[in-house]
């Protein structure tokens, strides 16, 4: 007899709650655009926030409501963007794939420290403390704000205290660009073509060479050496126009501290930075 009571009681309770829930679902139904779900399924789902929305779901909602475009999601890539655009019957305006590049090669063997910093492990904090512990006011502090900002594990701290961007993992989302308090990271079109002045210092030549053995000393030797006239001075820093550069390599030979490197030589994953650092040291 007991068991029958138990079955009836639980069965009735279950039925009651079930009815209550289904009624609630009917009464309080919220209409969700089914396209939001379809867009959400196509997205990478890393919730990286590079699109400017809190997560992939928010981006999907914003896209369906027309507040952003299909290629707003940078990590999604070309194919996915097309598929997302197809849901709303739109065409994608193609955007060139980009990759993050660090514009500083003054690692801890080449750029001197002014004092021992023992504070919070954060580039922004360290940089504000007496202009940072590095002798160079513009150089990478190596405390890894960019590493922590990367949702794809593409930025890793190299052995000499400079971040290395894994070219396979980098999606070009640009979060590390914003994370760097010294603005040392830029996104460039994905390619191995061209040469780069891997320095961001705006100091006078004398102070640069005192602080770092591979910093741009603004001597303009590269400008004179370049047959393409692709190099210009941006205040006290040489900048190479990648559209004009034809990879002749004259500037590399002309640069006294060895700041200029071909893009193909930039470390492409963790481990390659050791060799690069040795080559850079001997070039200077």
């Amino acid at each position: 007899m007991q068991i029958i009571y138990a079955i009836i009681a639980l069965g009735l309770l279950g039925l009651l709650f079930g009815l209550l829930l289904s009624m609630a679902a009917r009464i309080f139904a919220v209409k969700v655009d089914p396209r939001v779900d379809r867009v959400k399924e196509l997205l990478p789902g890393a919730n990286c926030g590079a699109c400017g929305y809190a997560g992939c779901v928010n981006f999907a909602e914003a896209y369906v409501e027309g507040r952003t475009s299909a290629n707003g999601c940078i990590p999604a890539g070309k194919e996915t963007s097309k598929a997302i655009a197809a849901i709303l019957g739109q065409e994608v305006t193609e955007s060139e794939p980009v990759i993050a590049t660090v514009f500083c090669i003054g690692d801890n063997t080449k750029a001197a420290d002014r004092f021992i910093y023992d504070g919070i492990e954060d580039c922004a904090v360290a940089g504000r403390f007496n202009d940072g512990f590095k002798a160079c006011r513009y150089g990478c502090l190596g405390l890894g704000n960019c590493v922590r900002a990367c949702p794809f594990d593409a930025v890793k701290m190299g052995s000499h205290g400079l971040p290395v961007v894994d070219q396979e993992a980098c999606t070009g989302c640009g979060l590390c660009v914003n994370a760097c308090p010294r603005n040392l990271i830029k996104t460039l079109p994905r390619s191995d073509q061209g040469h780069l002045v891997l320095c961001s210092s705006q100091d006078r030549g004398k102070s640069v060479s005192r602080a770092c053995s591979v910093g741009c000393i603004a001597c303009k030797a590269c400008i004179k050496a370049c047959p393409q006239e692709a190099i210009e001075m941006d205040d006290k820093l040489a900048v190479i126009d990648l559209d004009k550069c034809d990879d002749c390599g004259e500037c590399v030979a002309a640069c006294p501290p060895g700041t200029i490197h071909p893009r193909s030589a930039v470390p492409k994953k963790l481990g390659e930075e050791k060799e690069f650092a040795e080559n850079a040291a001997s070039a200077g």
């Binding site: 009571y5 138990a6 009681a9 639980l10 309770l13 709650f17 209550l20 829930l21 309080f28």
Partner: peptide, 30 residues
């Protein structure tokens, strides 16, 4: 009243699960 105290765990699981679901659907609308 029905001497079913031994069913308390099962009943409570049922109640809590349904309650949470109910609260969720209601909140979503209201």
């Amino acid at each position: 009243p029905y001497n079913l105290e031994y069913l308390q765990i099962v009943t409570f699981i049922l109640v809590i699960a349904s309650l949470v679901q109910l609260v969720e659907t209601t909140l979503r609308k209201i």
